[in-house]
Amino acid sequence: MGTGTGKTRLLGGRYQLTSPMGRDGVGIMWRAHDSRLRRNVAIKEIQPHFRDHGADLEEARRRALREARSAGRLSHPAVISVHDLLEEGGRLWIVMELLEALTLKETVRHLGHLPVHWAAWIGFQLLSGLRHAHGAGVLHRDINPGNILLTGDRVVLSDFGIAALSGEASASTTVPIGCAPAYTAPERLRGRAATPAADLWSFGACLYFAVEGRSPYPESGSLAVLSTAMSRNPEPPAKAGPLWTVLEGLLRRDPAARVSAGQAARLLSEILRLEGVAVAPPQLPAARFPAGPFTS
Score class of each variant (00 low, 15 high):
Ser202Asp: 10
Thr228Glu: 15
Gly135His: 07
His113Asp: 15
Val225Pro: 02
Arg190His: 07
Thr245Arg: 15
Met1Phe: 11
Glu219Lys: 07
Val279Met: 01
Lys105Tyr: 10
Arg131Leu: 09
Ile43Phe: 00
Gly129Val: 00
Trp93Ser: 04
Lys7Cys: 11
Asn144Thr: 03
Ala42His: 08
Leu130Ala: 04
Asp153Ile: 08
His134Gln: 06
Lys44Gln: 09
Ala169Phe: 07
Thr107Asp: 01
Arg252Glu: 10
Ser231Phe: 07
Ala261Asp: 10
Ala42Thr: 02
Gly191Lys: 00
Met21Glu: 11
Asp56Ala: 03
Pro20Thr: 14
Leu86Ile: 14
Phe203Glu: 07
Ala224Asn: 10
Ala238Gln: 14
Arg51Lys: 12
Thr184Ser: 01
Arg232Asn: 09
Gln263Ala: 14
Leu139Thr: 03
Ala180Tyr: 15
His76Gly: 06
Val138Ser: 04
Asp84Arg: 00
Phe209Trp: 13
Ala197Tyr: 06
Ala55Ser: 13
Arg9Ala: 13
Thr228Asp: 10
Thr245Phe: 13
Gly4Val: 14
Gln47Pro: 03
Gln47Asn: 14
Thr173Val: 14
Arg190Ser: 09
Leu37Val: 02
Met1Thr: 11
Gly6Phe: 10
Leu200Gly: 05
Ala120Thr: 02
Gly72Glu: 09
Gln47Ala: 11
Arg258Ile: 01
Pro236Lys: 00
Pro285Asp: 02
Ala280Cys: 03
Pro181Lys: 04
Gly249Thr: 10
Arg36Ala: 11
Thr173Asp: 10
Arg154Trp: 01
Lys7Glu: 14
Glu219Phe: 02
Asn233Gly: 14
Ser260Glu: 02
Val138Trp: 08
His117Arg: 15
Leu74His: 01
Trp121Phe: 13
Gly178Val: 01
Val279Thr: 13
Gly4Ile: 12
Arg232Ala: 13
Leu267Pro: 02
Ala280Arg: 04
Ala180Met: 09
Gly12Cys: 00
Ser70Glu: 05
Leu114Cys: 07
Val95Arg: 01
Val156Gln: 00
Ala185Gly: 05
Ser202Leu: 09
Val95Glu: 06
Trp201Ala: 06
Leu165Asp: 04
Ser170Thr: 15
Glu100Ser: 12
Ala71Lys: 04
Leu74Glu: 00
Ala169Asn: 07
Glu58Trp: 08
Lys239Gln: 12
Leu267Trp: 14
Ala238Arg: 13
Ala180Thr: 10
Trp121Tyr: 12
Val156Ile: 02
Gln263Trp: 12
Thr18Cys: 15
Gly27Leu: 01
Pro181Val: 06
Leu157Lys: 00
Trp93Ala: 04
Gly137Trp: 06
Gly123Ile: 04
Ala101Cys: 05
Tyr208Ser: 07
Gly221Ser: 06
Gly6Ser: 09
Lys239His: 13
Gly204Ala: 11
Gly123Arg: 03
Val116Ile: 12
Gly22His: 01
Leu251Thr: 05
Arg39Lys: 09
Val259His: 11
Met230Gln: 15
Leu85Ala: 05
Arg39Asp: 01
Asp254Tyr: 08
Thr18Lys: 11
